[in-house]
Amino acid sequence: MSRRWINRITFLFMGLTGLACATVILLVALILGHIAYHGVHHLSWEFLTTAPRAGMTEGGIFPAIFGTVFLVLLMTIAVVPLGVCTAVYLQEYAPAGSKLVHAVRLAIQNLAGVPAIVFGLFGLGFFIEFAGRSVDRLFYGGQLHFGQPAILWAALTMALLTLPTVVVATEEALRVVPRGHREAAYALGATRWQMVRYVLLPQATGGILTGTILAVSRGAGEVAPILFTGAAYYLPELPRRLNHQFMELGYHVYVMATQSPDVDATKPILYATVFVLLTLTFLLNFSAVVLRARIRRRLAEGR
């Protein structure tokens, strides 16, 4: 092939792939810019701190923010200890190459690929119908308390969904601890748990935090799992108990966008809500990225 042709094709190839790259970046900028542009001006202190009025055409979205935070808090309490224990098991307690390790790893990887709506079905079929009804039968004499959509079940469903995120991040953090540190602890007479507690976990805290933040971001953004496990469009009160339903930012966007009787009137609130949701997930992801970068830098220079 002649040199000129080769150069032309090189240029073409680079150009095409570069164009693909630019297109993606442009699309992202477009979406974010559009939402920011239309959402920003409706933001106000009142918007963030009051409840909606007049069929979602006035007022604010405080209950949705509260519900999202409450949901994510419960989810974190459930998923972080579970995820950290699982990761510690995989890295420290499991005999190398054992069948259980293989199975747990496979389970984690596959959990990560299960569609969000299937989690929602599971939340309904297991947590609400089975666990909730059982609790009602055992503790409330059959009265309906927990056998219905509730923030507790939604949070547990989300915890299962985000479990892989926490496990993977924690495992990474544990793996990076040098072997010499472990041996130093053992040589001093530490039991395995003492070694994990005094040497590994303190050093893995950054990674665990990163994983938690990513899980929280996912928990705040996914809507499909909470469609039937506890989210509601309008509630007169904030959820105060574990078996209450809750309003949530993502769910609010979904319902408002698809089922609002007067689209134009709710548009400003809708855009502003989307903006708040985006800002929330963006801030969370950003802090996770910054944290991860800081950990990497400290690893590179400290050791």
Partner: peptide, 25 residues
């Protein structure tokens, strides 16, 4: 350093927001 964060930004957009964007715009 510009490309990777942009992709991560895209990954961080909740699907309900993408659906919203598709629906409205």
């Amino acid at each position: 350093e510009i490309i990777k964060p942009s992709i991560e930004l895209l990954a961080g957009i909740p699907s309900v927001v993408l659906g919203f964007f598709a629906l409205m715009v």
